[in-house]
Nucleic acid binder design. Sequence first.
DNA 1: TCTGCCGGGGT
DNA 2: ACCCCGGCAGA
Length: 447
Amino acid sequence: MAAMGPEYRAGAGGAGTATCSSELQTCISTTTHGNDGPNMQQTVVCAQSCVQTEKAFIRSVHHKRKTSVRLQREAERGWSNLATPPQPAAPTVHLANPSATGEAPYSFRSPESVEMDEIMAAMVLTSLSCSPVIQSPPQADPVPACSSSSADMECGGGELSDSGSSGYWSWDHGNASPAPSPSVTEMDSSPDDGLHMELEQGEELNAKKPKSSFRVVYKCLWPSCGKVLTTSVGIKRHIRVLHLRSGSDQSQREEDFYYTKISCETVDASSAPAPPQLALGQVSSSHLSWASCGSPLASGLQIPQAHRPRSNSSSGPGPSRPSPLSQSAPSSFWQIHSEHLYQACSPIQVSVAPRSPGCQGWTPTAPVSGHNNTPMVKPRCRSVSVGEQWLQQNRLQPMSVSPSRTHCSFRKGRGEAKKCRKVYGVERKDQWCTACRWKKACQRFPD
DNA sequence: TCTGCCGGGGT
DNA sequence: ACCCCGGCAGA
């Protein structure tokens, strides 16, 4: 909606009077899709103001994350506060005077123009206040497909607006950067985001390659489904609606486990399947763990024979972005790691360290082996298993570099993990791990 | 009361 | 290093 701003402003030319000394031209950078170029997803919405109402609006732009109600109040205050000059600088709003921008001074503004400016400002502010995360820096926000030259990649304006109206992008990117995780004290977003950016930039470049363009498809990993969609939104919706049958937040998080992202090279029209290594290399890390676990669904990661025509029907700008879970995994991992630092302090931990995270060194008995070796038996339990596998695969690495804490004085609360006593019972105490037998911290089932 | 496990002691 | 257990704290 804000995309009509520049065209309108360019067409109207703008107006202004010399008497409006405090006239401001406010350029609000917001992210829309596919406007200024393949890499530019920014649209500069220029809202000029001459009357005090617009001054108030511009001042309220400084608080662009406030609610529209608050904006309305700001506007009203602006009416009653005519003498107050507008505050010149705000970090997130770029203010430019006309001389700086080289535009001609405005000499006349029709009432319609003023009204339209008000409408435009209101629209801009509404968009800012309603979806603040859209303007967050992760510019990797999608739509390489719109600029892609491949003819079969539809720009999918309907899809785009549909996903936008559902608030999905806001949710997704809200997970990505701006919302601070309550459990992580310090948001160490640089490595993950960097990887994220690299991945997306690489895929974006791949998508723009005229010779060998990569198409990213999303394959549903639900057993006996294998539906392939070209958008993550579509595949998430498909999983949520068809498989999870729930619209809760939990299912929104779970659905990331049930699809995989596949990049395949579209060399010619027949779209020969990409090599599996390539596909696996493009798959996000959470799904790599699936493949490395030797799950039966790892074979499902193969590239489909051809892109189904119906996948284009629901296709849109297939943004290649890691799943929210894969983004949030490292932070949660550090949280869990810090929870279990006490384990590294135990002298018994030395015997645990070299064991492979995927295959446990101990001889599994029936309930445990069923839990670890067949993670795909129950689909609803799959996400948990994958998460555990992910954690197990990543847990030992930082433990080896954990600081040498010689003394762990705090007593850890009891987790919900099963222990040897609970699994085997007291009558089979000989099957307990040594630590449990010695009443030490359990090695076999660490929390 | 059960459970997990820390701390300490014995061998 | 291995083994055992008292005792604390959480569920």
